[in-house]
Amino acid sequence: MLKYLIKRILWMVPILIGISLISFFIMHLAPGDITSNEAAFNPETSEESRQKLRELYNLDKPVIVQYGLWLKRMVKLDFGHSFKSHQKPVFLGTTDKDGNYTKGLIEQALPITLMINLLGLAITLLLAIPLGVLSARKYQQWQDKSITLFNFIGFSIPGFWLSLLLMYWLGVVNDWLPISGLHNLNYEHLDTWGKIKDTASHLVLPVLIPSITGLASITLFVKNGMLDVLHQDYITTARAKGLTEHKVVYTHALRNALLPLITIIGLSIPGLIGGSVISETIFAIDGMGKLFFDAVTSRDFPVVMGILTIGSALTLLGNLIADIAYAWADPRVRRGVARG
């Protein structure tokens, strides 16, 4: 297992280098020198910060040297400072000489996006597993057909449109739910219970909408997995032993049908992070997506490159965790790993 782990982690190094090359290349896509007015059209950019930028990226040196130096700083997790946002550090916070800690932009935004996506994923799984199982058990019957139709619509509905409609219906017409941000203005004055209630009501829409749109693919996946498993011999054996249908389906079949789901969840991470751009912009939530969108539109290069790199590293990490979880859950893989 340890050998597998080490191999798996070493494997990530060339991929990380590739990712850094692409992020670096993107910065150079912008027309002209990245410190020129054309590129950094943000009027807040002062001559001083432009000079800082030139120094930061060593723009007077050849491109290959620039990349090398950038990579060297990146290894130390130093992504520089934002052009906007009062020169806040991009990734991790710093403590100045007076001992004041300034939180990094990504450090601040990442937990919010992670929390929303993990909650969304939990809801998706809670709904998708029973729906997928039902669809497989009632294959080609009306239950399966309705779930399939629902899946197709879920696949096809633009999340931002659904957000807009629900926001209007639940937040504007009926005033049941708040429609922007994570907290009310009076948040600081609420008691603990009030704070929880306030945050929860703000989270309903941003969490629910991605889980509705993500539901379709997971349900379909569970259904196909179950269909494959239900025809296998060991299920027939379990039935022949006289086990109840519930036990056959939920303890024997489901376990094996769910195994590949681990990989699918790992693979869905970049989509989840990327998808946060639209939902966070709509609901005015200060997570990674909104931070990235604001950085892109104001050409805040250090933030853009930082998020691209961190977002990709997170994806790699997610896939690694998924692979380890898979090996842990599936004895066939685990044994195979031990031997190899």
């Binding site: 991929i15 590739g18 693979l267 970049p270 992070i273 998808g275 892109v296 990709s312 790699l316």
Partner: peptide
């Protein structure tokens, strides 16, 4: 295949957004 792995690990919506905004 390594190139595929690299491209798959970058959240594609971020990549598209950055490239289009810069170009």
């Amino acid at each position: 295949m390594r190139l595929v792995d690299v491209m798959l690990s970058i959240p594609s919506f971020f990549l598209i957004l950055a490239v289009i905004a810069f170009l």
